[in-house]
């Protein structure tokens, strides 16, 4: 075991994994975190804790991750390249591991111009693929990026993102291959609405042998309403929402649209479970965390597997 975490154990045991997402509050409001965490407990194998998502300042992802651990939820600590240089990143990686965080997700991060401090200085000292490789080197070789030795390497299951729908489509699987080569253990994809195109992406990943090397969790975000569907279709760069899906939501009574969105998500999940090379789903119920129990229940994903904790490992350096 690389991390000793639950998500790794679930995936290695071959279960179809479920991860969720929790956005930290814009303040030090611990109760807000607990309130979002409560419905996720027992419903997901790990929960992503976003890192200043959309470049808006929030409670730090490592601090929110620690609150989630207190609440009995395994966090997937997100880290973006926008806000930290390699010194701060490595320091936070060590601190996160020391305090019991077992998963992290390496991301470039939304550009600062989208956020609440649009003219701040973006760091981007290293990019997401270089970050993946840095964590892997820290964990597996017990070395900093500088090559110097680490006293107690971090134990982290390394995640990365993939957007099968960004252009150029044909290069996306090659970028996935770069993330795998850099050291990613698992991948969480952008929200999928165009299942046919995602199928083509996974076929390519299967053909290149990538799905043998990395666990791919397919991104699912249920559409809550018609405005949300239209927003996703037109205003989120790199998102692909087919017209037919929008028509389907439009076609039902306004009061039943949220339910239709969940129904669509459940159908997608069924289809993904049958898809070779898909190891689980990443359920991003954006500001809809309380609906997660209902969604995973209706999708037949309960109960979540209980995998025996791995035997304790000797500290690095001891045989």
């Amino acid at each position: 075991m690389k991390s000793g975490g639950n998500l790794e154990a679930v995936l290695v045991a071959g279960h179809f994994a479920v991860t969720g997402e929790l956005g930290p509050p814009r303040g030090s409001n611990v109760d807000a975190v607990r309130k979002k965490a409560a419905p996720l407990k027992g419903m997901v194998d790990a929960v992503n804790i976003t890192d200043n998502q959309t470049a808006v300042v929030r409670m730090s992802s490592w601090a929110t991750s620690l609150i989630c651990i207190q609440e009995g939820l395994e966090p997937n600590y997100q880290m973006v390249c926008r806000d930290r240089n390699r010194l701060a990143m490595q320091a936070d990686i060590l601190g996160a591991s020391a305090l019991g965080i077992r998963n992290m997700l390496a991301l470039s991060g939304d550009h600062q111009s989208f956020g609440d401090h649009p003219k701040c200085k973006g760091v981007f000292d290293i990019d997401s693929i270089q970050l993946i490789n840095m964590v892997k080197t820290m964990r597996d070789e017990s070395k900093f990026l500088s090559g110097e030795a680490i006293d107690g390497p971090p134990r982290l299951f390394i995640g990365a993102a993939a957007n099968p729908f960004g252009e150029p489509f044909e290069f996306r699987v090659h970028r996935l291959a770069k993330k795998v080569a850099a050291g990613a253990d698992f991948i969480q994809t952008q929200c999928i609405y165009n299942m046919e195109k995602f199928g083509r992406f996974i076929d390519m990943a299967n053909d290149m042998g990538l799905t043998q090397k990395v666990h791919i969790l397919a991104g699912i975000t249920p559409l809550k309403s018609l405005p949300m569907a239209k927003y996703m279709a037109t205003s989120v760069p790199g998102m692909d929402v087919p017209e037919a899906l929008i028509k389907r939501i439009e076609g039902v009574d306004k009061k039943k649209r949220a339910d239709e969105g969940i129904k669509i998500a459940c159908e997608q999940i069924q289809e993904l479970r049958e898809m070779k090379g898909v190891a689980g789903i990443h359920l991003m119920a954006i500001e809809w965390e309380h609906k997660v129990p209902e969604i995973v229940e209706r999708a037949g994903l309960l109960p979540r597997p209980k995998v025996a904790p791995p035997p304790p490992q000797p500290p690095a350096g001891e045989a």
């Binding site: 390249c81 926008r82 470039s108 991060g109 939304d110 550009h111 111009s113 989208f114 973006g122 981007f124 990019d127 997401s128 693929i129 270089q130 993102a161 993939a162 957007n163 960004g166 252009e167 150029p168 290069f171 970028r175 770069k178 952008q190 760069p237 790199g238 692909d240």
Partner: peptide, 23 residues
């Protein structure tokens, strides 16, 4: 590249091949 990526493109490339920051 708005993020000075060395292993791009990021996930934000628009369908017409433009940057997420400015279409």
């Amino acid at each position: 590249c708005a993020k000075s990526l060395f292993n791009g493109p990021c996930g934000g490339t628009r369908s017409e091949g433009t940057c997420e920051v400015d279409k």
